[in-house]
């Protein structure tokens, strides 16, 4: 994937360039633990290739995967809001290539340039909204075995 990921795609080029200037390429092998629930949310990623599973810790059980994040998608938004702690854990399912952004520098950039900050927050909110909607739809269990009587 050579296009900018959708999170950045909608931003004006100047904003995009300033954000990408903060990013560094990162690669992870299969099974790499990227973060754990409750840990400091000090960075986020835009996935270029590969797949990352988000999980929740439940004592006595293997952590269930609640969603996966793949190419073109934003991994991590807990860095946006205090207390900057991860809500979920993350682990790669396959080798992953991503842009990694340092959260403190991005937040500082947002503070210094409120227009950029507003646009980026708007885009993140859109992503969060889409995921909330997707989660609600999964709650419907649309493909569940029928309970009908016909």
């Amino acid at each position: 994937m050579t296009d900018p990921p959708s999170l950045l795609g909608a931003l004006p080029k100047t904003h995009r360039d300033r954000l990408l200037a903060l990013a560094r390429d990162s690669s992870f092998p299969t099974g790499e633990r990227l973060f754990d629930e409750g840990g400091p949310a000090d960075r986020f990623w835009l996935i270029r290739s590969g797949e990352v599973a988000l999980d929740l810790y439940i004592p006595g059980r293997q952590a269930p995967v609640v969603e996966t994040i793949g190419p073109g998608q934003l991994l991590g938004w807990s860095w946006l809001f205090p207390p900057y702690r991860w809500h979920l854990g993350a682990q790669t399912l396959v080798p992953v290539d991503a842009w990694e952004f340092p959260a403190d520098q991005v937040r500082a950039l947002c503070t210094a340039d409120p227009e950029l900050g507003y646009q980026l927050t708007l885009r993140c909110a859109e992503v969060i909204g889409e995921r909330l909607q997707a989660t609600r739809i999964r709650l419907l269990d649309l493909y569940a075995p029928s309970t009908g009587v016909s």
Binding site: S6, E51, A53, Q62, P64, V65, V66, E67, T68, G70, P71, G72, Q73, L93, V94, E130, A134, I137, R138, D141, Y143
Partner: peptide, 22 residues
């Protein structure tokens, strides 16, 4: 993509619209 990963599933988890970005 699947709504619920079962043991052994190594693929995508989420609704089908999530695949559009991929």
């Amino acid at each position: 993509t699947v709504d619920r990963p079962t043991p052994g599933w190594q693929g995508t988890v989420g609704v089908v619209t999530g695949l559009l970005d991929r």
